[in-house]
């Protein structure tokens, strides 16, 4: 923004996102988005390895089963879950489409979204594994 000569330009402090808990949660949500995209690349690579043949695919699966990758997966999964949950919270707070005269409490919308999410996830698991 244009400034006059004697104004002091505001500068954002490093670590601004540690200033309060909500900024930190926001940054984790955004990091979760990046992780989602990166994990998509891992899954794409799995397809590439599958196309490359059985030995390549088996080697890739063996790599995924090593402890460092498993630990990494736990962290990535936590970030992805946090990303999804925070978006479900936000849907309830915004509600661009209202189905009722008054906006629904955000916790109700959050609960509906989580139930739908679990339902769809369960259906996907059932389709792939034929039940757990």
């Amino acid at each position: 923004m244009p400034m006059t000569g004697r104004e002091y330009a505001w500068k954002r402090r490093p670590g601004w996102w540690l200033r309060n808990r909500r900024y930190l949660m926001f940054q984790l949500r955004e990091a979760g988005g990046v992780v989602c995209a990166l994990y998509g690349l891992v899954l794409l690579n799995m397809l590439v390895q599958l196309r490359a043949g059985e030995s390549a695919y088996t080697a890739f699966l063996d790599l995924l089963r090593t402890p460092p990758v498993l630990y990494l997966n736990v962290v990535l999964f936590a970030l992805v879950v946090w990303h999804a949950l925070t978006w479900f919270m936000l849907i309830g707070k915004a509600q661009p489409i209202q189905f009722t005269r008054q906006p629904l409490p955000w916790k109700v919308v959050f609960g509906i979204n989580v139930l739908l999410w679990l339902g769809v996830s369960g259906a996907v698991v059932y389709l792939i594994f034929g039940g757990i």
């Binding site: 923004m1 244009p2 400034m3 006059t4 004697r6 104004e7 002091y8 330009a9 505001w10 954002r12």
Partner: peptide
């Protein structure tokens, strides 16, 4: 207030 240029002490520039 953060994010605004400071004119003097606690007074910031709201023109933008």
């Amino acid at each position: 207030l953060s994010n605004f240029p400071i004119l003097k002490d606690l007074v910031v520039d709201f023109d933008d």
